[in-house]
C-alpha cells in the first residue's frame, strides 16, 4: 500500500518533470529535467522491484543510474562543442 503510494508520488513527480522539459524555455532546463527524470526512474525501479517482490530490478536501477550520468555529461559536451570527442587543452590539468 505504502509502496504503491510512493510509486504514484514518483510518477506524479516524473510527470511534472516532463512538463518542465516540454515548457523549457532553454535547452538547459530540458537537460536538467531529463537528468532529474533519470534519477526518479532509478528510485521508481527500486520501489517497483519491492512492489512486485523481484529485487532483480535493483540491478537495472544501478545500471540506469550509471547510464543517466554518462548521458547528461555527453549531451552537455555535445551541446558545448558540437562534437563528442575533441582534443581540448583544459582537460590536461
Amino acid at each position: 500500500m505504502i509502496l504503491a503510494i510512493t510509486a504514484i508520488a514518483l510518477l506524479v513527480a516524473m510527470a511534472m518533470t516532463l512538463l518542465r522539459a516540454i515548457l523549457g524555455p532553454s535547452i538547459f532546463d530540458r537537460i536538467l529535467a531529463a537528468n532529474a527524470f533519470g534519477t526518479k526512474i532509478v528510485l521508481f525501479l527500486g520501489v517497483y522491484g519491492f512492489l512486485t517482490e523481484r529485487p532483480d530490478f535493483l540491478d537495472i536501477a544501478l545500471l540506469y543510474a550509471l547510464i543517466n550520468f554518462i548521458t547528461t555529461l555527453a549531451i552537455l559536451r555535445f551541446f558545448e562543442s558540437g562534437v563528442l570527442f575533441v582534443k581540448s587543452d583544459e582537460e590536461s590539468n
Binding site: 506524479v12 511534472m16 532529474a36
Partner: peptide
Amino acid sequence: SFLSLTFGLGL
C-alpha cells in the same frame, strides 16, 4: 514521496 512531489513543484 512528499519530497519528490516537492521537487516537482519546485521545478
